[in-house]
Amino acid sequence: MLSTKFTKLSKEEVDRKWWEIGDFFRRNSLWMLMYCTGCCAIELPPAMTSAYDMERLGMGPMATPRQADVLLVTGYLSLKTLRRLIYTYEQMSEPKYVVGIGSCTINGGIYHDSHAVINQLNRYVPVDVYVAGCMPNTEAVMNGFVDLMGLIKTKKANGWKDYHARNEWYMANQKAALGEVKVHDEFHE
């Protein structure tokens, strides 16, 4: 016979259960911050509006990084934008996920030999899902979001933990590409 006696769970168990509950709600209501840097951003209007309607997946746009769960990087990133992207990423509250859209974020795409554009996004910020293509069609983009939800469900979307664990490595890469991550321009001084 099963015991009906209440057994006290360990703290880790309780935490894990709360995280599962949290993840359930998170993955069904993802708020995206769209960092539309490149031409791939043109795939987002059909994904968001009535043609593909990402709200049926529970996804919506969010205007501020502090309230967003997903950072969408759509396309090439110049060094100037990368600097701002790192600012934005670090402002987001955890857990946070990054989706890189387009071959530019994967290996530089057609800008692989440009002086201004970085080649691999996941050297500078951790990327959970990549959507390949130049540009990927809207189905692929939607599929990328579904994949992200699956990864959250199976606890594989751990980019933000990786950012803590290997912080020195990320910092060193950012330094190598940018010199200094801090923004120096008229608006920040």
């Binding site: 530089g108 030999d113 080649n119």
Partner: peptide, 10 residues
């Protein structure tokens, strides 16, 4: 050459 030097290729 600049890109090869500065950005790691996949």
């Amino acid at each position: 050459a600049y890109s090869d030097r500065k950005f790691v290729k996949r």
